[in-house]
Design a protein around this nucleic acid. Structure first.
Length: 574
RNA sequence: GCGCUCUUAGCUCAGCUGGAUAGAGCAUCGGUUUUCUAAACCGAGGGUCGGAGGUUCGAAUCCUCCAGAGCGCGCCA
C-alpha cells in the first residue's frame, strides 16, 4: 500500500466514525476524495480535496467546511502535524515525524518492490508482429520497446504477462517474398538478372537470405519455383525470423510466444471461429458496399461471409472471404484472437503502428463478439518515429528497400538510449528521434542524466566505503530534513502513484519523465554543497547526518526500480 | 466523404477520471568549481492552452461546431 492510500483510508474512516462532530447530512462520494501531491510552492506533503467533494453533496461552502475538517484532522489524526486550508478549499497536510519515519522505513524495507501495487491480473500483450518479409525498421522499434516495457511494468505491478508475436507467414506478401528470394538465388547461381517487377522485394537483405539458404544446401535443384515453393518458404521464413529475433535481442526484447498464421490456417481454426460467430448471428452471407476511399479494381460485388462488426461499434461490416471464397487476413486474425480468448487471459492488448489505426475497431469488435463482451481487447497505437541526423530527415519505405532498419539504428546508438528515448514521449505523439542528441553525454540527454544521478550516488557510497546492499533504517526518534530533502522525499512518495497511473492507462512515458524529475532534484541536492558548505554530505570521511544516507538510498531504490522496468542499464561509474 | 491521433512558451513536449499563480527541457541572457563526479547547479525573460460557443462555484482538461497537421479508409497483409 502506498502512503496516499494509507492516509486516505485514515481520512475516510474518520469521516465515517466522527460525523457526530461534523454533523453532515450526506456522507457520499467518498471514493471521489483524492490525496495528492500539492504544488511545490505550498511546501506540504499531501493535499486533499475532501471539502470540495463533501461541500458539493451537502451544499456547504467548501472553505468553511474545510476549516471544520482542518480542526477535526488535527485533533484526531496523529499522523498529521499540520493542516492548512488553501485555494478553493484544499486541505494541505504535513505528516508528523513519526509518520514520515514510518513511511521511509517501509520504503527502505520494500526496496526492489517499492512502487508495486499488486494488481494480480493476467495479460496477453501482442507486439512487434512485423511481417517476416524483411528485417525490422525503426518504426517497429518503438512498438517493440513499448510492448516490452509495458510487460515489465505490468509484471512489476503484480500481474502475469505473456509477450506474444504473431507471425504473418501466410498470404500473397509471403508469396512475393519467397519469389524474391527465388530470383536472388537464380541471380547468384546463374547470373540471371533480378527482374524489375512491382510485386518483388528489391531490398538487398533478400540477397543475404538467398546466400544463407544456398550455403546450407548447395545441391538445391532450383529450376522449378512451384515445386520448390514450400521448401523455399520454410527456409526463407526461418532466415527472416532469425533476422527479426536478432534485432529484438539487440534491443533487449524476448517474446514468450510466437504464433504462426499458417498454423491457424492449417489447423482450420478459422472455420471454428466463424462457426462460433455464425451461431451467435454475428456472421452471415451478404453483400458489402463498395469502398469509400481510393478506387479499387479488386472490388467485386459477390455474395460472401460477412462479420457484422457494426453491432460492436465498427464503421462498416467486414468481409471474411475474398472473391474466390478463401479467407481474408481479417478472418485469420479473428481465429487467432479466438485462440487468445480461449487461453483465458483477463486482458488482451495489441500494440500497433500508426498505419494500422483503421484496423482497431474491427478486431476489438471481433473480440467482443467472440467473448460475449466479457473480454475487451485494448489496442494501443504508437505514432511514427521521425529520424533526424545532421538536420536531414530520413524516409522509410519497406517496399522500396531503402528503409532505415533497426540494425542501422543499433549500429550507431546503444540499446539503452534508444529504449529510454522511445519511451520519453507519449505513444500518441510522433517522435523526432535525433541520432546525435541521443549520443550526447550532457544533461540535454535524459538517459545520461538519470544514469549520472545513480553513478553519483555510487560514487558517494564509495567514498564512504559502504554500498546500497547494506540495509539501513531510521531509528532515531527525532530526525530533521532540510528543504531539499523534503522535496526529494515527497517525490519518492509519488513513485507508486506513477506506477499506478502508468499501468492503468498504459502511459509509459510517465516513468522516464518521473525519473528525470527525481534526478533533477537529486542533482540539485548534490550541488547545494557547492554553494553552501553546510549542505556537504561528508566530513572527515564520515556521513554528516544519517538522514542523508536515507535520502540517497531512497533515490537509488526508485531509480533502480524505474530503470529496471525500462530495462535500461545503470552503470555504477561514468 | 468517413474514422483515429495531434494543435499548450521561439522550438520539442508534460499536464486531461474538472480544481490552487498552466509546468519541464532546448534556445536566449546572467551567475556558480581550493572541498563527495561542473558530464553538474542557480537565476532571468518568455503563454489569449488552435478558434467559437456550451455545461458549472470552477475548464488546457468534459460536450458541440469550425480550422490546421499527420496516419488510415480493398475482397492486401
Amino acid at each position: 500500500m502506498n502512503i496516499f492510500e494509507h492516509h486516505l483510508k485514515e481520512i475516510q474512516n474518520l469521516i465515517l466514525t466522527k460525523n457526530d462532530i461534523l454533523k453532515l447530512e450526506k456522507i457520499e462520494n467518498l471514493d471521489k476524495i483524492n490525496l495528492e501531491v500539492p504544488p511545490e510552492q505550498f511546501n506540504f506533503d499531501l493535499s486533499c480535496n475532501i471539502a470540495m467533494i463533501l461541500g458539493k453533496s451537502n451544499k456547504l461552502n467548501p472553505k468553511k467546511l474545510a476549516e471544520k475538517l482542518r480542526e477535526l484532522f488535527l485533533d484526531q489524526i496523529k499522523n498529521f502535524s499540520n493542516v492548512e486550508v488553501a485555494g478553493p478549499g484544499f486541505l494541505n497536510i504535513k505528516l508528523s515525524k513519526s509518520a514520515l519515519k514510518e513511511n521511509i522505513n517501509s520504503i527502505l524495507k520494500n526496496n526492489e518492490n517499492y512502487g508495486s501495487n499488486k494488481t494480480n491480473e493476467t495479460y496477453n500483450i501482442e507486439f512487434v508482429s512485423a511481417n517476416p518479409t524483411g528485417p525490422m525498421h525503426v518504426g517497429h522499434c518503438r512498438g517493440a520497446i513499448y510492448g516490452d516495457v509495458l510487460a515489465n511494468l505490468l509484471t512489476f505491478n503484480g500481474n502475469k504477462v505473456v509477450k506474444e508475436y504473431y507471425i504473418n507467414d501466410y498470404g500473397s506478401q509471403i508469396k512475393n517474398f519467397v519469389e524474391s528470394v527465388y530470383f536472388r538465388i537464380l541471380e547468384i547461381k546463374f547470373k540471371k538478372p533480378f527482374p524489375k517487377k512491382d510485386n518483388l522485394y528489391p531490398g538487398l537483405y533478400i540477397k543475404d537470405i538467398a546466400v544463407k539458404i544456398l550455403n546450407k544446401n548447395d545441391n538445391l535443384d532450383i529450376k522449378d519455383f512451384e515445386k520448390n515453393f514450400e521448401y523455399l518458404k520454410k527456409k526463407s521464413l526461418e532466415e527472416s525470423m532469425q533476422l527479426i529475433k536478432n534485432d529484438l535481442k539487440l534491443l533487449g526484447i524476448k517474446h514468450d510466444n510466437f504464433f504462426s498464421e499458417t498454423e491457424i490456417v492449417n489447423k482450420d481454426l478459422v472455420s471454428k471461429a466463424i462457426n462460433n460467430l455464425k451461431k451467435k448471428k454475428y456472421v452471415e452471407k451478404g453483400f458489402l458496399q463498395p469502398p469509400k476511399g481510393e478506387k479499387n479494381d479488386n472490388w467485386k460485388k459477390v455474395e460472401r461471409l460477412i462479420f457484422k462488426s457494426t453491432l460492436f461499434g465498427d464503421d462498416s461490416d467486414r468481409a471474411l472471404q475474398k472473391n474466390d471464397g478463401s479467407w481474408t487476413y481479417f478472418a485469420n486474425d479473428v481465429a487467432y484472437h479466438m485462440d487468445k480468448v480461449n487461453r483465458g487471459y483477463n486482458n488482451l492488448v495489441n500494440i500497433l503502428g500508426a498505419d494500422h489505426t483503421g484496423y482497431i475497431k474491427r478486431i476489438t469488435a471481433a473480440v467482443s463478439a467472440l467473448s460475449e463482451k466479457k473480454i475487451k481487447l485494448n489496442c494501443k497505437v504508437c505514432q511514427l518515429v521521425k529520424l533526424f541526423k545532421n538536420g536531414e530527415p530520413f524516409k522509410m519505405s519497406k517496399r522500396a528497400g531503402d528503409f532505415i532498419s533497426a540494425q542501422d539504428l543499433l549500429s550507431e546508438v546503444d540499446k539503452d538510449p534508444i529504449r529510454f528515448m522511445m519511451l520519453n514521449r507519449s505513444n500518441d505523439v510522433e517522435i523526432d528521434f535525433d541520432f546525435d542528441k541521443v549520443k550526447e553525454k550532457t544533461k540535454d540527454n535524459p538517459v545520461f542524466y538519470v544514469q549520472y544521478a545513480y553513478a553519483r550516488i555510487n560514487s558517494l557510497l564509495g567514498a564512504l566505503n559502504t554500498s546500497l546492499v547494506k540495509k539501513i533504517e531510521i531509528n532515531e526518534i527525532d530526525f530533521n530534513l532540510n528543504e531539499m530533502e523534503e522535496k526529494i522525499i515527497r517525490k519518492v512518495f509519488e513513485w507508486p502513484k506513477i506506477i499506478e497511473s502508468a499501468s492503468r492507462k498504459f502511459d509509459l512515458h510517465k516513468i522516464p519523465f518521473y525519473l528525470y524529475e527525481l534526478s533533477t532534484l537529486f542533482h540539485a541536492y548534490w550541488s547545494k554543497g557547492n554553494e553552501d558548505k553546510r549542505y556537504k554530505f561528508i566530513e572527515n570521511q564520515k556521513i554528516k547526518r544519517k538522514e542523508i544516507l536515507a535520502i540517497i538510498n531512497l533515490v537509488a531504490i526508485v531509480i533502480k526500480n524505474g530503470m529496471r522496468i525500462l530495462d535500461v542499464s545503470l552503470p555504477k561509474k561514468m
